[in-house]
């Protein structure tokens, strides 16, 4: 008989015992260890996920902060640039204004200096010229000259137009009717009579003619009647000469000033 029932029972029992033993010593510990490891791995993965999520959040936060910081920096830079530009413009304007003021002051100073110098030169020249003229004319002045001057004066009186004479007569009528004839030297009686005759001949016989001596006339003669003046004198020529010289100087100063302004503009 191949089947021994005692052995069958013993083997069945043995197998059940083996099942218990293997469950006790093999399956349970091994499966528990695997479960524990899987749990640990899962926990570590969950931790890693959490850390990754945290890191992602932090990275996002830092990115936003960085962006905000960049934007703020750009804004500040732009603001600073604008302020610097404005200040630069302001400083440049101030500097230009200061330079312009300086140039103006310098030009004015130069102009005033030039004017003063020209005046000084003019006055000096005038004085020199007049001194020379006076000296010359004084040296030359004598009765003959005065006669010629009176003759010239009378000729001028007679050359007055009718309107001028009329104005002169009305002015004389409005005044006290006195006519003053002034000369640098005392007129001798002959020229004086000729002069008086010419005046009365032109303005009427009732005109009172007075004669005065005025040294400033240098050489010459003039008639004052009611605020009107008819004159011929060397001083008049000298005055005309002086006026001409002054105008010449002024023209020259104007040209200098224009040239100086042009130079300033070029430098600016």
């Amino acid at each position: 008989m191949l089947i021994d029932w005692f052995t069958v029972g013993a083997q069945a029992l043995n197998f059940l015992i083996l099942v218990w033993l293997l469950k006790r010593f093999l399956y349970k510990p091994v499966l528990d260890a695997i479960d524990a490891r899987e749990q640990r791995v899962a926990a570590e993965l969950a931790d890693a996920d959490a850390i990754r999520a945290t890191a992602r959040t932090e990275r996002e936060t830092y990115r936003q902060k960085n962006e905000a910081f960049d934007a703020q920096r750009a804004a500040l830079l732009a603001q600073a640039s604008a302020e610097a530009r404005t200040q630069r413009e302001q400083l440049l304007d101030e500097a230009r204004a200061a330079a312009r003021a300086l140039a103006d002051a310098r030009r004015e100073r130069l102009e005033s200096e030039a004017k003063a110098l020209h005046q000084a030169i003019g006055v000096r020249a005038q004085k020199e010229v007049f001194a020379i003229a006076r000296k010359t004319l004084s040296d030359l002045a004598d009765a003959g000259l005065e006669e010629r001057m009176v003759a010239v004066f009378i000729a001028r009186l007679q050359a007055l137009t009718a309107e001028e004479l009329k104005g002169l007569a009305s002015a004389l009528a409005a005044s006290d009717g006195a006519v003053s004839v002034r000369s640098a030297f005392d007129l001798p009686p002959a020229p004086r009579a000729a002069c008086e005759q010419a005046i009365t001949g032109l303005l009427g016989a009732d005109v009172k003619v007075g004669f005065d001596t005025v040294a400033e006339l240098v050489g010459g003669i003039e008639m004052l009647a009611g605020g009107h003046k008819v004159a011929w004198s060397i001083a008049g020529y000298l005055t005309a000469l002086e006026t001409g010289v002054t105008e010449l100087l002024r023209a020259k100063e104007g040209a200098d000033a224009t040239a100086a302004r042009g130079g300033d503009d070029g430098r600016r």
């Binding site: 089947i3 052995t7 083997q11 069945a12």
Partner: peptide, 15 residues
């Protein structure tokens, strides 16, 4: 091998 015994295999089959 105990599995070469029909008693053992019968025992296992009965299990």
């Amino acid at each position: 091998p105990p599995t070469g015994s029909l008693s053992t295999t019968v025992a296992l089959a009965l299990c």
